[in-house]
Design a protein around this nucleic acid. Structure first.
Lengths: 143, 143
DNA sequence: ATAAATGCAAACGCTTTGCGGGAAT
DNA sequence: ATTCCCGCAAAGCGTTTGCATTTAT
């Protein structure tokens, strides 16, 4: 009832979709790799578990994970869509090191509040936002 | 001395690049269309002025505009890179209506400050950031 | 039995690139 | 004269899709 696995099964049955072995494997791999991963990266992991699963199935399944709210898609601007787990996780933004690509998840309530009032000031009902901070991390600067 | 045209010529000569008619036309079109435009959109405008100019040249020239600091590339997440004029314009972020695609340029100094201190708190030297707020504009909500 | 999901390979949309002829320096 | 640039067409990239077959319901 409170696991992402269960949530996914519920989403599938609610939409008359089949609970296939491939979908189970993709979800398992997705949950097992924390961080922010592309479909290609996930596919490589999936292959280790079952080499007969195709890239197309990974793309298709990850899209379902996003639609069901278990995954969230991220665009760091390098042409690749990445995904992170959103299940039972609070919203956060990202701090990205432009040198080593390290990514830190950050939250700043005051920014969120200001975004909301900024949107309101312009008559907008805010749905969501994307905020990515690019810089150089401490380790790279000292290196 | 203070026009984008001059700045571009200077950038070109500094890098041993030729001041061609095509580059002049692309710059002129870019400066003449305010807002946020894709290379394809710019190409269509360019064609009206000179139908012999190729898409490839538009892509190549716009890239030069970005490298020279006259243009800035924007990624609103729909798979198309757009460009806006950066010459003598202050930094700003964007508010995007997810329904009609209207885009408003916004600035909130307090957010900028909080971003800076948030980065510092994590040991980052901040280079730049991307912030896009997605929502529904007043007109679309009332419609 | 029906409807849906899979693997495969081809197609997609945006963008970049190799090439030979042509233009700027 | 040399270097750089252009237009063209082809390739590149991550991702999506049509199709015939296999699988879940």
């Amino acid at each position: 009832m409170f696991s992402p696995q269960h949530a996914f099964l519920e989403y599938l049955s609610k939409n008359n979709m089949a609970a296939t072995e491939q979908r189970r494997v993709v979800l398992e791999v997705f949950l097992g790799t924390d961080g922010h991963h592309s479909c290609e990266e996930l596919y490589m992991q999936v292959c280790k578990q079952d080499p007969t699963i195709s890239p197309a199935t990974v793309y298709r399944t990850v899209k379902l994970l996003a639609e069901s709210g278990i995954a969230e898609s991220l665009d760091f601007g390098d042409g690749v869509t990445r995904f992170e787990c959103r299940y039972n996780k609070q919203h956060h933004d990202h701090l990205v090191c432009v040198r080593c690509n390290m990514k830190i998840e950050v939250v700043e309530e005051r920014i969120e509040d200001l975004q909301e009032s900024l949107a309101q000031k312009h008559g907008f009902t805010l749905n969501r936002h994307k905020m990515i901070l690019y810089g150089i991390c401490a380790r790279c600067r000292d290196a």
